[in-house]
Amino acid sequence: MSEVALPASLEEVYAIRKREPGAAVLAGGTDLLVRMRADGKKPPVLIGLERIPGLSGIAIQDGVVRIGPMVTHQNLLDSPVIRKHLAVMHEAAQVLGSPPVRHMGTIGGNICTASPAGDLLPALYVLDAEVEISSPAKKRVVPIATFITGPGRTILTGQEILTGIRIPVPDPGYQGFYRKVGQRRALAISIVSMAALLMVSPDKTVRSARFAWGSVGPVVMRFPDVESSFAGRTFGPALLADVGRQYSERIRPISDIRASASYRKMVAAGLPLKILEQ
C-alpha cells in the first residue's frame, strides 16, 4: 500500500520527500497510475500536488504566459489567454487523449512524463517555453529542451519539483499550427506530431518559421539550421513539401508497436502540407 499525502504547500512536499526519497509525485494521474498498474509496483508514498494553491492558474505578464504545472489540459482549452496568444498549445490540447483524460491530466505531468509522444511538448518546444524548477535550496529556470533529457527522463534531481511553465508570447505576426497523426482520431498516442510557428508577410514571404516534432526521436526535435533556411522563401505547397523533405531526412524515429520508422518518415515528409488544411 502507498501512503498518500495531499500537501497544501511546497514546503510540505519537500519535507515528505526528504523523509521518503522513494516518494512519487502525483499530478493528474493519467500516466503515473497507469504505469503503477502495469508495473504492479507501488511507491511508499504518493504525493498529490492538486491541493497546492500556487501550482494552478494561467497568467500573462510582461509578454510572458505563466502556467502552473497542475493546470489541466481542459484548463488550457478553456483559457482565453492560451487561445489568443498560444494558439498552437490550444490546438495541441484539443487532440490530446480524450475528454476525461483532458479533465485530469496536467501540463506539468505531460512535461515530467517526458514521453516523445507527449502532445503538449512539440508546442512547448516551438514556443521556446521555459520551466521553473524549485527545491528547498533554490529555484532555477531552464529551457524545456534542457529539462527533458530522454524518453521518460528529465534533469529533476533530489527534491526538485516542476513549479511553473513560462512561455514568451510570440510576436503577433506568428501563426501557430499543431498537426498530429495517430492510429485513430481520439484516444490516440501520436505516431508523428508537429508544432509550427510561422510568420509570413502579406506577399507570402516567410519571415520566420519554427517547427518542433514529436514521436520521431528520443525527445521532441527542433533543428535551428533547418528553420533558418526557410526565411525569405515563398510560402506555399512547394515550400511546405520541402520542409517535410528536409525534416524527414533529419529525424531519427524508431519502430514500435504503433508504427515503423519508415512510416514515420513518410508521414513527416508530408505533414507540413497539412498546415494548408483547415
Binding site: Q183, A186, L187
Partner: peptide, 16 residues
C-alpha cells in the same frame, strides 16, 4: 500477444 491492451489494440472511437 503484442497488442496487450486497449491502448495498442485499436478500436474505433466515436470520432472515427
Amino acid at each position: 500477444v503484442v497488442t496487450k491492451n486497449l491502448s495498442t489494440y485499436i478500436l474505433p472511437t466515436s470520432m472515427d
